[in-house]
Structure formats: C-alpha cells, structure tokens
Computed example of a mutant assay.
Amino acid sequence: MTLWRGTEPLILASQSPARQALLAGAGIAFEAIPANLDERAAVLGSALSAPGEIAALLAREKAAVVSAKYSGRWVLGADQTLAVGERLFNKPAGRAQAAGQLRALAGQAHELYSAAAVVRDGEMVFEALSIARMTMRPLDDAAISAYLDAAGEAVTTSVGAYQLEGLGVHLFERVEGDHFTILGLPLLALLEFLRSRRLLAV
C-alpha cells in the first residue's frame, strides 16, 4: 500500500537498509540509488568539525550528486553522525575496532545527529536535522565480546557498532529522542515537507 502521489518514485540517495525500511513502512514509493560520494573528502574540503553540521553537509551532498543525474526527480539524501562531545565516531572497519568503540562508549552518553535533505533539479528544497541522546550502560570486556559474537558482521554496518532495533538494545540504559532519528532519518519533518508539496495522500 502506497500513500505516495508523485508521478515518479522518490529517490533515496542511500543503500541504508534502515532508511529504506522507514520509507517503505511509511508507504512512500521510492528507489534507492547510492550517491557514491567520497564522504571523507567532502568533510575535509568543508573544514567543518561540528557533528551536526557534518551530517547536514553529507545529506546535502548525497542528494545533490544523485539529483544531477535525474532531472525532475525528488532526491532524498541522508546522513548520521555519532559524537561524544566533539569526538566523532565512524563505522568500525572490523571486530577489533568495534570493540574499541564500545569500550569508549560504555558508561557514557553520546549524541546521534540525523540529517536529511531533498534536492530537485539542483535546488535544495528541504533540510532537517534531529538529535537523539543515548546512554550506554557500563560494559566489561566479557559483555562486549558476547555482544560482538552474537551480532556478527552487523556491527560494521552502522556507526557506533550497534543497531538499537536489534541486539544493540542490550547495550543501553537510557534513550532520549525519537525512534526515527536513532535509525538515521528525521522522518516526521520529512513527511511534513512531502505533504506540503502534495506528494502524500495523508
């Protein structure tokens, strides 16, 4: 069942399974076309350091790259950053790096910044940023090892080495912020924008 009223599906400039699931669950017809953006180069070239600004920049850049190839289409870019204070975390490259991240996050609060941008014909027509605050419970090496054993390769697919919607829920003692932000998309703000453009039936 779709609530989408656009003449062509929304383009999601991402391969994120979580974001795709959010759009599908909201009844939005879309196709996923990754931006193939060199994110590290984009951040270094911007001289930005604040995690929210970096997430917003990458969301804009992803949408713009794909929009340049698809005239007339609504293109959604999204990005998420994780920070403890000013320290930014990236997706871990493997189990050892994931374990190191979890040791650094254990017993601490961190912030997730989820950004979205919509570009059409090279013009940015929508931008949103939302924040969630996550408090991880204290974890010893045995608990971290048990979690990594159970979660497997999934720990390398998201920043912070966890998916709250899966086994990652065992790592936390407190979560502040909406579910969609945690999964990587400020969905409520996006839906409001799409309604304003008469792209949704509800």
Rank of each mutant, 00 (worst) to 15 (best):
A42S: 13
A42R: 02
L44Y: 01
G45M: 02
S46M: 03
S46V: 01
A47D: 15
A47R: 15
L48V: 02
L48G: 03
A50E: 15
P51Y: 06
P51E: 10
E53I: 00
A56G: 10
L57N: 01
L57M: 09
L57K: 01
R60C: 08
K62R: 14
A63D: 02
V65R: 15
V65I: 12
S67N: 08
A68C: 06
K69C: 11
Y70A: 09
S71L: 11
G72Q: 11
R73P: 01
W74I: 01
V75E: 11
L76K: 08
A78V: 05
D79Q: 04
D79N: 06
Q80R: 11
T81S: 12
T81R: 14
L82I: 12
A83D: 12
V84Q: 15
G85E: 07
G85W: 03
E86Q: 15
E86V: 07
E86C: 03
R87L: 12
L88E: 04
N90V: 09
K91P: 00
G94S: 12
A96P: 00
A96W: 00
Q97T: 10
Q97L: 10
A99D: 02
A99M: 10
G100P: 02
G100S: 13
L102Q: 02
L105E: 05
A106F: 07
G107K: 08
A109V: 05
A109L: 01
H110W: 08
Y113S: 02
S114L: 04
A117C: 13
D121Q: 05
G122N: 09
V125L: 15
F126C: 03
E127I: 04
A128I: 05
A128E: 06
L129R: 08
L129V: 08
S130Q: 15
I131T: 14
I131L: 15
A132M: 04
A132C: 05
M134D: 06
M136G: 04
M136C: 11
P138D: 12
D140I: 05
D140W: 09
A142P: 00
S145A: 15
A146V: 06
A146W: 05
A146F: 05
Y147I: 03
L148N: 10
L148F: 08
D149T: 15
G152I: 08
E153Y: 07
E153S: 14
A154I: 13
A154K: 13
A154M: 14
T157P: 01
S158I: 03
S158Q: 10
Q163Y: 07
L164V: 13
L164E: 12
E165D: 14
E165Y: 03
H170T: 14
L171A: 07
F172T: 01
E173I: 06
R174C: 03
V175I: 15
